[in-house]
Design a protein around this nucleic acid. Structure first.
Lengths: 135, 135
DNA sequence: TTGGGTGCAAATTGTTTGCAATTGT
DNA sequence: ACAATTGCAAACAATTTGCACCCAA
């Protein structure tokens, strides 16, 4: 639960870079942040970390299960602390906002469909690209 | 339906490049092809087209609705002739094979979920990353 | 003829890597 | 102390773009 512990139990040293990056990912406004978003946020808080290190640490965090990588159609990858409850995403094309949602029925159907074809789901990605209703 | 017509009605000139690329996309083995796959296929058939042109034409085809672009987690984009019936994809992590599937119930739930949050779906992407069951 | 289309090479963008210097344990 | 980590710049991969030449309408 504690930041340092989370890093350590992934077999990684607790460094300024890792702590700083984890701090950004934990902030509400920066869940779903790109490597560059994180880089900028850190510069703002006068705590710059080299962009190469950010990419390296994010990859380590993904391997360690601390965060997950999303490949939306926005060009760059977005990172999110691994949520305890799985959920999918809606990306608003007008505002760029990312909305999380969860739907049990969809999850169940996915399993069923994969099994029918003779496969087991390892991972999946469901993204709805949306626009506000009224407008 | 005819190849030339499809190109022309998109407001594009019927050129060797466009015809060749469309031909590759139409072949069963090359639905879900990357720009580079197409490039290689064309070289094989002694009908090379510059890679830059391939990218340009694919973008025009996407804009014209002739084909769609998929961004699976494989690094490059894959292109597919716009299917008349919408379907989603399963990508086998073992073989790289892309399997198409369709599920009405999932589609309906997506609409419902988006509406509940106050949005209208413009597009969506559902990809199941799978492995063969027995193994 | 003539404006769109093409090839080539150079430019971009997002991300990774080699290496010397630095730091956590 | 010593291996792990970092920053910087160079390397990369996928895709885009500028420009001189070419070709469909």
């Amino acid at each position: 639960m504690n930041k340092n512990k989370e890093i350590r139990s992934a077999g990684l040293k607790v460094t300024r870079a890792r702590r700083a990056i984890l701090r950004i990912l934990e902030s509400k406004e920066s869940m779903h942040a790109s490597a560059d978003d994180i880089h900028r946020k850190l510069i703002e808080s006068a705590d710059e970390i080299g962009i190469a290190t950010i990419y390296r640490v994010l990859n380590q965090f993904v391997s360690a299960g601390i965060c997950i990588r999303h490949n939306f159609e926005t060009g760059q990858s977005l990172y999110e602390l691994t949520p305890e409850h799985h959920h999918d995403h809606m990306v608003c094309l007008t505002t760029g906002k990312v909305i999380e949602f969860e739907d049990e029925m969809i999850e169940r159907r996915q399993e069923k469909v994969a099994n029918q074809k003779g496969y087991r789901i390892v991972d999946h990605s469901l993204v709805l690209y949306v626009e506000p209703l009224e407008k």
